[in-house]
Computed example of a mutant assay.
Amino acid sequence: MDVTNTEAVNAFVDDITEAWGGVDVLVNNAGQGKGGSLDSLTPEDILDHANVLQMGHFRFVKAVVPHMRKQRWGRIIEINALAGTIPTPSGIPSVINRASCVALSKSLGMSLPKDNILVNSLNMGWIDTGQWERHFQEMGPGVTREEFNEMVLKVVPLGRFGKPEDVAGMALFLASDYASFISGASIDIAGGMGGQIAYFPTLKSDFAESIKAKRKDS
């Protein structure tokens, strides 16, 4: 559904609560990567991106919280990105809009527990979804997937991509009564990657340059 449309979000949540008698868990998973630098971006580029991330997440929280307050039980899990907690030197829209989402999660994680609504953020590192295939295709010809993966995973201490199950397992835990005293937490699902993420843009550009040189020589 279109998370940038407030009326559509409200109607969707109303349909869910009517069908199921309430809403217990919200996993705010709307996301969109967007690169760009100070020289290439306009303010409108960042605002468009914010409408998906910051406002998309906010719209859904605003729609579900009244229902959760009625039943005095709710769990909100914000799917965010490591770039929101550790800025990188490129990709300004993703950096600042993800940071805003993490801040929203922490703020709500402090204000909503009085209603027994707990809010936590899961910050993604390199999770093996379709986006990595897209990033690989952007490299163009002359690059094998093995070479690409080796470059990408140099900044991941665990040495592999995360799996969707790695995220789902933590989301299930936070949605359960086992996590009844956790709110406002910011949890990185990144295989040990932290500050290393800041080196990735340079690593990627160096890799791209080496591939260009390799093509030229061949």
Rank of each mutant, 00 (worst) to 15 (best):
residue 7 E to F: 11
residue 8 A to H: 06
residue 11 A to Y: 05
residue 14 D to H: 10
residue 15 D to W: 00
residue 16 I to W: 05
residue 18 E to F: 08
residue 19 A to T: 14
residue 20 W to V: 09
residue 22 G to R: 04
residue 23 V to F: 00
residue 28 N to Y: 07
residue 28 N to W: 09
residue 29 N to W: 02
residue 34 K to P: 02
residue 37 S to G: 09
residue 41 L to Y: 01
residue 43 P to Y: 05
residue 43 P to A: 12
residue 47 L to W: 13
residue 47 L to P: 09
residue 48 D to P: 07
residue 51 N to G: 09
residue 52 V to H: 08
residue 55 M to T: 13
residue 56 G to A: 02
residue 65 V to S: 00
residue 68 M to S: 06
residue 70 K to Q: 12
residue 73 W to M: 02
residue 74 G to D: 05
residue 76 I to F: 10
residue 78 E to L: 12
residue 79 I to Q: 01
residue 81 A to Y: 11
residue 89 P to V: 10
residue 92 I to Q: 06
residue 92 I to N: 11
residue 93 P to Y: 02
residue 94 S to Q: 09
residue 97 N to W: 04
residue 99 A to C: 10
residue 100 S to W: 13
residue 101 C to Q: 13
residue 102 V to W: 06
residue 103 A to I: 08
residue 103 A to G: 08
residue 105 S to N: 09
residue 106 K to L: 11
residue 109 G to T: 03
residue 110 M to Q: 15
residue 112 L to C: 06
residue 117 I to G: 09
residue 118 L to Q: 07
residue 119 V to W: 02
residue 120 N to G: 05
residue 122 L to E: 01
residue 122 L to R: 07
residue 123 N to V: 01
residue 131 Q to H: 07
residue 133 E to C: 03
residue 139 M to F: 06
residue 140 G to T: 00
residue 141 P to D: 14
residue 142 G to P: 01
residue 144 T to F: 04
residue 144 T to D: 05
residue 145 R to N: 05
residue 148 F to N: 01
residue 150 E to L: 11
residue 152 V to G: 04
residue 152 V to P: 05
residue 152 V to R: 06
residue 158 L to V: 13
residue 160 R to E: 03
residue 160 R to Q: 03
residue 161 F to A: 06
residue 161 F to G: 02
residue 161 F to D: 01
residue 162 G to P: 10
residue 163 K to T: 13
residue 164 P to Y: 05
residue 167 V to D: 03
residue 170 M to G: 03
residue 171 A to I: 04
residue 171 A to H: 12
residue 172 L to I: 15
residue 174 L to M: 10
residue 174 L to K: 07
residue 175 A to E: 00
residue 179 A to G: 01
residue 180 S to V: 05
residue 182 I to M: 15
residue 184 G to D: 11
residue 187 I to D: 10
residue 188 D to V: 09
residue 192 G to H: 06
residue 192 G to P: 00
residue 193 M to N: 03
residue 196 Q to Y: 12
residue 198 A to T: 12
residue 202 T to A: 14
residue 203 L to R: 06
residue 204 K to D: 12
residue 210 S to E: 12
residue 214 K to D: 12
residue 215 R to Y: 11
residue 218 S to M: 14
